[in-house]
Amino acid sequence: MDTLYVYVISDSIGETGELIAKASVKQFDTDDFEIKRYPYHNSIDQIEPILDEAAKVKSLIVYTNVVEETRAFIEQRAKALNLHVVDVMGAPMKAIEAILGYAPLREPGLIRRLDENYFKKVEAVEFAVKYDDGKDPRGAKKADICLVGISRTSKTPLSMYLANKNFKVANIPLVPEVPVPKEVYDKDVRRVIGLTCDPAKLISIRTERLKSLGLSSGAKYANLERVQEELDYSKKVMTELGCKVFDVTNSAVEETAELIVEYMRDTFEERD
């Protein structure tokens, strides 16, 4: 029995076409096949020799190209050579065009751009975890955004939310007894965001936190005098830095995050 050769031609990396080819061939009781993938092939000069080669063996052409000129050439040349062809993108795009009422972009590699965006988001989330709560002050230097504030001012949830917007965020707790890392003062102050909160709200949040840990609500952590001391200290630090400050008292994490994103966009014309 002659070997079946499946030629996968793509204007991107060709993963989609190869997966479909493999899944299809596996439905047949044969191991006598070979899949040959040709990524980033979008010109007639690149594709014509592949079709000519395929015409000499038992073959199937699977392609995912989206540019109309290239697609037309593959169909016409394959017909002339009596080749079997599967147009992976054609039918789905045609159906979606009929539903939406407008033509597709026909830009090669769009799915890879989406994947790259996904990996950037993962990288940002990993960054936020690594540099959470001042674990490593060097993160302040590398971060797109450095959040500073006392305990329970939403630094960690904001870091994670902003990470999902592709921002690398480090957060540094401000504690009167602990010096602020040099990296914070050395950073572009426009990338340092201060967080503050009403003392009564903070006491309420900290009291609940103590309860969840099985500790007494009368601990110094939730004491008005201590909370006010921390707030005064954080105000002094933020004034010294000259950084932008957001009050999180009456804002959900999502709302504060959107304000920060808007500020960054206006300041640096960055993406959200």
Rank of each mutant, 00 (worst) to 15 (best):
K142F: 15
D144K: 06
C146E: 02
L147M: 07
G149M: 04
R152T: 03
T153S: 04
T153I: 09
P157F: 07
L158C: 06
A163L: 08
A163W: 01
K165C: 12
K165M: 15
K168V: 06
K168M: 07
V169A: 00
V169I: 10
A170N: 07
N171V: 10
I172N: 01
I172F: 00
I172Y: 04
P173I: 04
L174I: 09
V175H: 02
V175D: 00
P176G: 02
P176Q: 04
E177Y: 11
P179Y: 09
V180Q: 00
P181S: 06
P181Y: 04
K182T: 14
K182N: 13
K182L: 13
E183N: 12
Y185Q: 08
Y185F: 14
D186I: 15
D186C: 13
D186M: 15
D188W: 10
D188T: 10
R190N: 10
R191W: 10
V192F: 03
V192G: 01
V192P: 06
I193P: 01
I193G: 02
L195W: 02
L195V: 11
L195C: 04
T196L: 03
T196H: 02
T196V: 12
C197A: 14
D198P: 12
P199M: 07
P199C: 03
P199L: 05
K201Y: 12
K201H: 12
K201N: 09
L202V: 11
I203P: 04
I203E: 03
S204Q: 14
I205S: 03
R206T: 08
T207P: 06
E208G: 11
E208T: 13
R209K: 07
R209G: 04
L210S: 00
K211F: 09
K211E: 06
S212R: 12
L213A: 03
L213I: 08
G214N: 06
S216I: 11
S216A: 10
S216G: 07
S216E: 10
S216T: 12
S217C: 12
S217Q: 14
A219W: 12
A219Q: 15
Y221F: 11
Y221E: 00
Y221T: 05
N223R: 10
E225A: 15
E225D: 14
R226W: 13
R226N: 15
V227Y: 00
E229H: 14
E229R: 14
E230P: 08
E230F: 09
E230I: 13
L231N: 06
D232K: 13
Y233P: 09
Y233R: 09
S234Q: 07
S234I: 09
K235C: 10
K235W: 11
K236T: 15
K236F: 13
V237K: 01
M238P: 02
T239D: 11
E240T: 14
L241V: 09
L241A: 03
G242E: 02
C243N: 02
V245K: 02
F246W: 05
V248Y: 04
T249W: 04
N250K: 14
N250G: 11
A252F: 15
V253R: 02
V253I: 12
V253L: 03
E254Y: 11
E255V: 14
E255I: 11
T256M: 04
T256R: 00
